[in-house]
Amino acid sequence: MGTFHHDKGELHGITVVVDVKGSRLFVGRCDTVVPEGVILLDADMHDEAVADDKGNVVSKGDYLKKAARFGIWKKHDRVLVPAEEVVSVTPLGEMA
């Protein structure tokens, strides 16, 4: 696709879901994938083992259903998801 940054890889600029081992997952705009991991911008991290502000525990699947429909509320400007924890990287648009 026509981005201004052709050196950053095919996922650059794409909102992706980075599922990791355990109860957490990350959603954010992929900056680049490096040997150390996946760098996300404007990202959110969801942990299905931790209750939200309202005391609800939300599964990864339910969180993703909502994210796929409306997007995510950014909580972090930049996140490096360590490569050794990454299970999958999937465009959020493919989950809608």
């Binding site: 696709m1 600029g13 794409i14 796929a68 997007g71 465009p91 648009g93 809608a96």
Partner: peptide
């Protein structure tokens, strides 16, 4: 109706 960015990317 709302189309967010991630429904635009890669399409």
């Amino acid at each position: 109706h709302f189309i967010p960015r991630h429904m635009i990317e890669n399409r």
